[in-house]
Design a protein around this nucleic acid. Structure first.
Length: 197
DNA sequence: TGCTGGATTCACT
DNA sequence: GTGAATCCAGCAC
């Protein structure tokens, strides 16, 4: 299965990339366990002028990775409990990123259940940014991981997503960002039960 | 060196 | 609907 090329991630419009990631397959091969799922919900974060983006205010060691050329993972620990998985986009020195909020499980469901400490498949296994990282085994070790490597990557398996099936709305949990919290930069696949909220 | 609060989730009431 | 759990980056001193 073809991994997405570097040119996909270095696209100049992070909003475009956010929508293009819907329907793609997020795959991890961690601890010898292959797990994957269809990306069904994303959010765009722009490093320039977007108050909700970590990299907007100041360049720090944590956000340094977002200034790299697109195609690497930005993994961030939130509330001391949950890891959030982002895809860095755009070219070097432009700190854009796409937050992956939800996926639909496809492969390695048994492994996901074990990681989530669940007995049977339920919607909440991957519906939410903190959930999907746990299900896929993503953690701080994958901060800065190259998405063309053999640990975490994204595949295009030819699934077609119609523009009319893509819904847009305000982002979640970024009320502190003032007016920028209202930007319709959250995207999800219509009628998909694994979308959070 | 110490304090504050967050791109959240889950278990209760 | 509400509140606790829980770590570390960023900033103040």
């Amino acid at each position: 299965m073809p991994k997405l090329p570097d040119s996909f991630y270095t696209h100049a419009d992070v909003v475009h990339v956010s929508k293009a990631l819907l329907g793609k397959y997020l795959v991890t091969n961690i601890d010898g366990q292959l797990t994957s799922g269809i990306i069904v919900e994303t959010e765009a974060y722009c490093g320039r002028g977007d108050k909700a983006c970590h990299a907007n205010y100041k360049r720090t060691p944590r956000t340094e990775i977002m200034y790299q050329s697109g195609g690497v993972a930005y993994v961030y620990l939130c509330y001391g409990i949950h890891y959030l998985f982002n895809v860095v986009t755009n070219v070097e020195n432009l700190a854009d990123a796409v937050l992956v909020r939800a996926i639909e499980p496809v492969e390695g469901i048994e492994s996901m259940l074990a990681r989530r400490n669940m007995k049977q498949l339920a919607k909440r296994i991957t519906a939410g940014p903190g959930c999907l990282t746990q299900a896929l085994g993503i953690n701080k070790l994958h901060y800065g991981a190259n998405l063309n490597g053999g640990t975490v990557w994204i595949e295009d398996r030819g699934k077609v997503v119609n523009e009319t099936d893509i819904m847009a709305g305000p982002r979640i949990g970024v009320d502190y960002a003032g007016d920028d919290a209202l930007l319709p930069w959250r995207f999800w696949l219509r009628d998909n039960k694994y979308v959070s909220k």
